[in-house]
Design a protein around this nucleic acid. Structure first.
Length: 277
DNA sequence: CTTGTGTCCTGTAGGC
DNA sequence: TGCCTACAGGACACAA
């Protein structure tokens, strides 16, 4: 499940590989992964014969900037990834393919077909990508600071875990990094957002930054199901550094207690009941 | 405004 | 062995 560190890793790899290439062909194998425009032919027409100028990221969205102020925006949801491929062979679950010339192509692979691709001009953003418009600041930026998070948590009765997953509050964070950040901060995922002390909020801001930066440093988290791989097929390395996610029933590396699995809202949530209060 | 629930989708894991 | 069901997850629509 690509979260901020995974999408950022993909962004860096892709930037080095595809900037300057032109999109020579667009093949849409499954039309329901096209989020905007509604008509997949219009989507293809917007992208064809445009040159790739840069690859950027906002939260979990990957933004490929093209000529003439047209962007290709991708969201991988749970199981999507990109593959740089050569030749005519199609990866399993390829939903969209951009031919880049010289036999190379960028392939959008999405087994569950929940991920989406959008072709938007700058005017289209509000209509096409509401989530992007209301998204909060990047948690690894200066804008995401203690007063800002404190204001967002104030008076909130929802579990802090759910608030961290809210992209308007904490963009780029998903199930893995929210559990890891809460562990590092020593805060129980079930705590009501409004109940956190100033000290706890400060720890949480630091923990979120640190865990996301570590995730980027290790090129993301690839679990057994390989839902996230880099465009060249390489796996990430942060799974070796997870303290709670996927470790339910195992012992806490800090206190030796047993890592618990509970449900917070609809999400499976892992925590250590003695380290996190 | 906030909070909770249902929907999308399909491979995988579990029960029998 | 094989069928069936439940589940995972992020974003969003919608109800209360």
């Amino acid at each position: 499940m690509p979260e901020l560190p995974e999408v950022e890793t993909v962004r860096r790899r892709l930037h080095a590989r595809i900037v300057g290439c032109s999109i020579e062909s667009v093949d849409v194998w499954r039309t329901d992964v096209i989020g905007y425009p509604k008509d997949w032919r219009a989507f293809a027409d917007l992208l064809r014969n445009r040159r790739i100028r840069s690859v950027e990221r906002r939260g979990k969205y990957l933004i490929v900037k093209l000529d003439d102020r047209v962007d290709l925006v991708l969201h991988f949801r749970l199981s999507g990834h990109l593959a740089i491929v050569r030749g005519r062979a199609r990866p399993r679950y390829e939903r969209l393919r951009l031919g880049l010339g010289g036999g190379g192509a960028l392939s959008f692979v999405e087994p569950r077909a929940l991920g989406r691709a959008y072709a938007v001009s700058s005017d289209d953003y509000p209509a096409a990508l509401h989530g992007l418009r209301v998204m909060g600041p990047e948690p690894i930026s200066r804008e995401f600071d203690i007063p800002w998070l404190a204001a967002k948590l104030k008076g909130r009765r929802s579990a802090i875990k759910n608030l961290l997953l809210d992209q308007r509050i904490c963009c780029g964070v998903g199930n893995i990094y929210s559990d890891e950040a809460l562990f590092r901060a020593g805060v129980r995922p079930t705590r009501r957002g409004g109940s956190l002390s100033g000290r706890e909020i400060a720890r949480l801001v630091r923990s979120l930054r640190a865990v996301l930066q570590d995730g980027i440093r290790w090129c993301g988290t690839t679990l057994r199901d390989r839902r996230y791989v880099q465009p060249d097929g390489a796996v990430g390395g942060f799974q070796r550094h997870l303290k709670v996610y996927g470790r339910e029933g195992k012992s806490c590396q800090v206190c030796g207690g047993q890592i618990k699995l509970v449900r917070v809202g609809v999400r499976g949530t892992r925590f250590c009941s003695s380290c996190q209060r």
